[in-house]
Design a binder for these strands. Structure first.
Lengths: 113, 113
DNA sequence: AGATTATATTCAAATATAATAATATTTGCA
DNA sequence: TGCAAATATTATTATATTTGAATATAATCT
């Protein structure tokens, strides 16, 4: 299992609209940098910066194809995260059953809503 | 489905070690602020700030119990995210099959690794 | 070799986030 | 009513992230 640090690190790396769009696109298949640049509609250096960050944290990798760098997903958690983020949850979690919650074992008052 | 903005917003809210620890704890059950304070071992105002952020984004909610605020998980995605983050993935995603990736439909060179 | 294509790196400015300290609010109780 | 407990808010400072501009590298082609 990932350490707490690693779990949070991953979340931080994912928590950016451009990077999420990019990863959702890579889930469909390999893509080279200039195609990514066109898809995301941001500057080439900015694409490279995001790719570099994702690489640094092991989220993606690439192979060379002629002079193109073809990027693909590497960390197996990514498809799962993307799926859950897109899943439709119909309702909120149930409010926990009505039993007193204690502060250090001492119940200090009446339970209300 | 959550919009891209909302998906990223959620990730940003989760991407902090204290908040992840807190949510993992709340997954076990309701907890009041001073117990959370003790569990996380950070200052009370800091606990309140994190709780406030999580509330603002609909991740958690609370009920009153005497003078205690009892916090619990509200957004149903949270248990799923926590589970996936803790899951053990044995290997990386397979490197995509070796077919040329094109830049705008034109294949510019030899495929290598 | 030199030009061109494809991509990466570096730096600085702008912005966002987090922690701390100080203070305020709310609720129950004597 | 006034006090104490429980929690929240605000302001400030410190730190991290993001972007754009400029420049660098690396591979292929002529």
């Amino acid at each position: 299992m990932r350490s707490l640090i690693k779990r949070v690190e991953l979340l931080r790396v994912l928590a950016h609209p451009i990077r999420i769009k990019l990863l959702e696109e890579l889930l469909k298949g390999v893509k080279c940098v200039s195609d990514i640049e066109e898809f995301l509609d941001i500057s080439q250096p900015n694409v490279s910066q995001h790719l570099s960050l994702l690489r640094r944290y092991g989220v993606i990798d690439y192979y060379m194809d002629g002079r193109l760098r073809c990027y693909f997903l590497k960390d197996p958690i990514i498809p799962d995260i993307i799926e859950i983020l897109k899943k439709n949850y119909m309702k909120e979690l149930p409010v926990p059953a009505c039993c007193p919650v204690t502060k250090n074992g001492t119940y200090p008052g009446e339970r209300r809503r």
